[in-house]
């Protein structure tokens, strides 16, 4: 018990005295997972909406692929990315191995199926008659998608947050493609692994506290939204 209290005390000191390493790791984590979730949104939401709202050949197949992707083990995502970006791989010339962009790619691979899958389920929940209503108001194809995305904005937002929560707390893929290089590709989760390995428990606990705070914040917001069906600013959007 002693070590835990000691650790937490140290953690608080590290956080509030603005320990440079802690904040470097925090900002890199937010940068990597933030841009990963941004690209995943760009990819996942349109895919979810397009697949959910249209009938076309292979639709069931594509849905099955997305659902498989939702359960893709992070290490599998990491391995897939590695096979492409390592020096002898197809994209080796881009020199992405052990860089933050590589981590972003791996996280996109993890998060975009989650976002696409939840968005897809959400737009399929929308009354198909509502699509007819939008059409009969004179909407073109693009407007139909846009309006129906807005209609599914709460689940879509939940999807984005689920994706973010998934990748920010993931360790397997980022350590594979990022290499856990100090100051460069070391994010919260891999730093925690490293600190524990090095016996640096104060730091590890500080980082865990930060990670928990972030994931709790995300989940708290998510719960708020799901329970209240939209706090003010979301409704106005």
């Amino acid at each position: 018990m002693e070590i835990i209290w000691q650790g937490i005390k140290q953690a608080i000191i590290l956080i509030f005295t603005g320990n440079r390493e802690v904040y470097e790791i925090l900002f890199l984590t937010l940068k990597v997972s933030g841009s990963a979730v941004f690209f995943s949104m760009l990819l996942g939401i349109p895919v979810g909406v397009l697949v959910g709202l249209n009938k076309f050949p292979l639709k069931k197949f594509i849905i099955a692929v997305i659902n498989t992707g939702m359960g893709l083990p992070p290490v599998a995502a990491g391995l897939i990315v590695i096979l492409f970006i390592w020096r002898s791989g197809m994209l080796g010339f881009l020199k992405l191995m052990y860089t933050p962009p590589a981590m972003v790619i791996a996280q996109v691979l993890i998060a975009s199926p989650i976002i696409a899958g939840i968005t897809l389920a959400a737009v399929q929940q929308i009354d198909p008659k509502l699509k007819q209503q939008v059409l009969s108001l004179g909407a073109n194809r693009f407007q139909v998608y846009w309006i129906l995305i807005r209609e599914a904005r709460l689940p879509a937002l939940a999807a984005v947050m689920a994706g973010f929560g998934g990748i920010i707390s993931e360790v397997g893929a980022v350590i594979m493609v990022g290499g856990n290089i100090k100051g460069e590709t070391r994010v919260l989760t891999t730093a925690i692994v490293q600190m524990v390995r090095m016996g640096n428990f104060d730091m590890a606990i500080a980082l865990v506290v930060i990670l928990l705070a972030i994931t709790f914040g995300v989940n708290f917001l998510l719960t708020l939204i799901q329970q209240k069906e939209g706090i003010g600013w979301i409704r106005r959007f």
């Binding site: 990819l43 349109p46 697949v51 249209n54 076309f56 292979l58 881009l94 972003v104």
Partner: peptide, 26 residues
């Protein structure tokens, strides 16, 4: 089938843009 083509085209372009953004940034 036209829709499927548009869909695939869209996916491809997003992937290509993303990759080239990364390539450029590196």
């Amino acid at each position: 089938f036209r829709f499927l083509k548009i869909f695939l085209f869209f996916m491809l372009s997003v992937i290509i843009i993303t990759t080239s953004v990364f390539a450029f940034s590196c």
